[in-house]
Amino acid sequence: MLNIAYVGFGKSTNRYHLPYLKLRQDKFHVSRVVTPTLGKRPAEQSELEATGTVFSTDIDDIIEDETIDLVVVVTPSASHYQVTKRLLLAGKNVMVDKPMAASDIEARDLVNIAYDKKLFLMPFQSRRFDSDFLTVQRVIQNGYLGRLVDLEVHMDHYRPNDGQLNGNEIDGSLFGHGVHLVDQIVSLFGAPNSATYDIRSTRLLNSPVDDQIEVNLFYPQAFKATIQTTELATIQYPKWQLRGTQGTFIKYEVDEQENDLKTGIMPGDARFGVDTPQNYGHLVYYNQSGDRIDKYIPSIQGDYGRVYDSVYNTLVKGMPKLVSDENMITVMKILSAGLKEKGPHVVKFS
């Protein structure tokens, strides 16, 4: 069993991490939680304390505890780099919430420290286990579409009044939403040859915090992957569109896990994360006989807890990390390049 400590006890820890560990108590025990405000979530704190979890306000309590096998950093994005670096230098294995840092330079620094000290380091890329992404992955692997030509993936909302007038670049949509989408593309196709960027602030025009992004990633064999996010979508756009030489796949609805967690449907419930048939993705392709096949693809059930399964398999069984060091650096290079120049621009990667 692995002893875990959390730095941070806010919404993300209690919504996207701890509910999944309740199904994995044979593998993980939450030994410590460090939070700046004790008692802010009294029910959740009491539940963990009843299982032996110790709460405190000082990160040194984690650093000095030699029984801790893994520290999970779930703090505000701007603090990820410094907190993670401090923990790594103290000899702790770390999983850090996304984005892992504010630049590829910071990310490479963390990767190098972990490598030198032979420690585990990985970002919490939970959306590798989104239902919609797993289904897209299956469609690609099965070869329905032939050679891929275009892929579009969106993460859109309608939040017209939530713009930030002040903040850091790491607080914007590129590093907030885009990091998920870029990681999904990199996990499928690796590093692109080049990219074009359109990064804007649309709700508050003078804000330094972007809220609308379009990034085009260009790969060999005339393949392009496009990621887009906006906070001003009143009409839903498809979550995924894939076009290849033999067919097209379109899926509108997103993974249900987040919606279920918000409404109190928890992992382990029979209904949790289940996509309904009317929300299945639509596939049209031509088979080897030239027949036109038109069908809907049942969605693979998502499970963010599989990130923790992968961590366990790496730390206990020596299996490769879910997110490799190369993937981490590639994702951060793509994100960082989007903010190194104002306005639409093109970047070529070596």
Rank of each mutant, 00 (worst) to 15 (best):
L188V: 11
L188R: 13
F223Q: 11
D198M: 06
P208K: 02
S207N: 12
R200F: 09
I185P: 01
T196S: 14
Y219G: 04
I199Q: 05
P192Y: 00
V209T: 10
V179T: 12
V179G: 13
L204W: 04
I213N: 01
R200A: 05
L204F: 10
L205T: 06
E214I: 14
G190P: 14
Q184Y: 03
D210G: 05
R200M: 06
A225Q: 02
F189D: 07
D198H: 12
V182D: 03
F189H: 10
N216V: 10
P192G: 06
N216F: 04
E214R: 15
D211L: 05
A191E: 14
V179H: 11
L181T: 09
Q212M: 09
V179S: 07
Q221N: 14
I199N: 00
L181W: 03
N193G: 15
P220D: 08
V179K: 04
V182I: 15
I199E: 03
V182F: 11
Q184P: 08
A191K: 15
T196D: 04
V182M: 04
V209N: 08
H180R: 09
A225H: 09
V186H: 01
T226V: 13
P220Y: 09
T226D: 06
S207Q: 05
G190H: 15
S187F: 14
S194Q: 13
N193W: 07
R203K: 07
S201H: 08
Q184W: 04
D198K: 07
I213T: 11
Q184I: 06
V215D: 03
D210S: 06
A195T: 08
V215H: 13
D211M: 06
T226M: 15
R200P: 05
F189T: 08
L205E: 06
N216Y: 15
L204T: 00
V209P: 03
P208M: 04
T226N: 13
K224V: 08
T226I: 14
R200W: 03
Q212R: 08
Q212H: 09
L204H: 06
T196V: 05
L181E: 14
D210F: 10
P208Y: 06
F223S: 08
T202A: 01
L205M: 00
E214W: 13
L204V: 12
P208E: 10
N206I: 10
Y219D: 05
D198G: 04
P208Q: 02
D198T: 09
V186A: 03
R203D: 01
V179A: 15
A195H: 01
V215K: 01
L188F: 07
Y219P: 07
A191M: 14
D211T: 08
I199F: 03
P220N: 05
P208G: 04
